[in-house]
């Protein structure tokens, strides 16, 4: 039987929604027993949130002051110390999980599966390669621990209402001191989180400047949407890096995605192909974004977007 340990992602006080999506993936493995590990300086609030997630059988906490910031070198030895009891160890395919899980896998001496998008069996999964232009079925050895990251855009978050038991796990794992947190610069926003928002409005190079992004924000606020951007817009300095959507940025799956002034390079499209409805607004009718858009409108975004914002 599969016994799965999921590493919770959090910001020190709140559980990240990526965790409930990772649980949803694990729950697709027949007869799986699912435990969530919360490694934090103060685990209580995060652990109770994790205990509410449907499908979780137990929450384990490791409270150490070193766990205040999620450094892979610090967390990995503690996870490895728990690993013996599990057939699988999963994390989300966010920058947190991508940084951490390969480190865990290497300490365990196993290869790792990145970006599980569907579960075929307890040791067989599908994952995207080549920027999503091919889907590969992979099989892991049944006599080794399966360490994997879960492509969160492929799974709906497991529901709430559960009340799994919470236990403190002891960990005396040795932690290296060679890696130290210095600072975090985070663009605090009241807008919905890009990775979990039901609606997302994104701007590209066509928006032209940081100031012009104002019309994108105005439309997003009218819709109650999160805001994203293409790599071109981030490279040009119009918006910060955490807004980038695509192969090397965030992979998202909102119900509604509005791409404004985005031509639609394959690297961008791979980040949105799970969106419910894609709307493209671009002055170039040949733009590849129209190949995948459910609704397309050719025209000048500086006219269309204010008009749309007013009309909604």
């Amino acid at each position: 039987m599969s016994k799965i340990l999921i590493i919770a992602e959090h910001n020190g006080s709140e559980l990240n929604p990526s965790t409930a999506k990772t649980v949803a993936c694990a729950a697709e493995i027949d007869g799986a027993e699912v435990h969530v590990a919360v490694l934090a300086a103060n685990a209580a609030a995060i652990a109770s949130a994790a205990a509410e997630v449907d499908g979780v059988n137990k929450v384990l906490t490791i409270e150490r002051s070193e766990n205040e910031h999620p450094l892979a070198a610090v967390l990995a030895p503690q996870i490895v110390a728990m690993a013996d009891a599990y057939s699988h160890i999963f994390g989300p395919s966010t920058t947190f999980g991508k940084d951490l899980m390969p480190h865990v896998a290497a300490l365990l001496g196993v290869n790792q599966i990145s970006d599980i998008m569907s579960v075929t069996g307890s040791h067989t999964f599908k994952r995207p390669v080549y920027a999503g232009n091919a889907i590969v079925t992979v099989s892991a050895a049944t006599d080794a621990t399966v360490v994997a990251t879960v492509r969160t855009a492929s799974f709906s978050a497991a529901g709430g209402g559960n009340s799994a038991p919470i236990e403190a796990a002891d960990s005396n794992a040795d932690i290296p001191s060679h890696t130290r947190f210095v600072s975090l610069q985070s663009g605090k926003t009241d807008r919905p989180d890009l990775q979990t928002a039901a609606k997302v409005v994104s701007g590209g190079r066509g928006v032209g400047s940081s100031e012009n992004f104002g019309i994108i924000y105005a439309l997003a606020d009218k819709l109650g949407a999160g805001v994203g951007a293409s790599r071109a817009a981030v490279d040009a300095g119009y918006v910060p890096n955490e807004m980038q959507v695509g192969q090397t940025g965030k992979i998202i799956a909102p119900d509604l995605y509005i791409a404004i002034g985005i031509s639609g390079a394959i690297q961008h499209l791979t980040g949105i192909k799970d969106a419910g409805t894609i709307v493209a607004i671009n002055k170039d009718e040949e733009a590849p974004i129209f190949e995948v858009a459910d609704i397309g409108l050719v025209g000048d975004l500086f006219q269309i977007i204010p008009e749309l914002t007013d009309a909604l």
């Binding site: 290869n111 067989t124 091919a134 889907i135 079925t137 992979v138 050895a141 609704i295 749309l308």
Partner: peptide, 30 residues
């Protein structure tokens, strides 16, 4: 280390081209 075997490749499900609208009113209706 223990191999993770790639057993089969398949193309992704393609999103088809949708509808084009003429103006903002058409977009809102859609």
């Amino acid at each position: 280390g223990p191999a993770i075997e790639a057993t089969a490749y398949e193309p992704p499900t393609e999103r088809g081209r949708g509808v084009m609208v003429d103006d903002v009113a058409g977009l809102i209706t859609a």
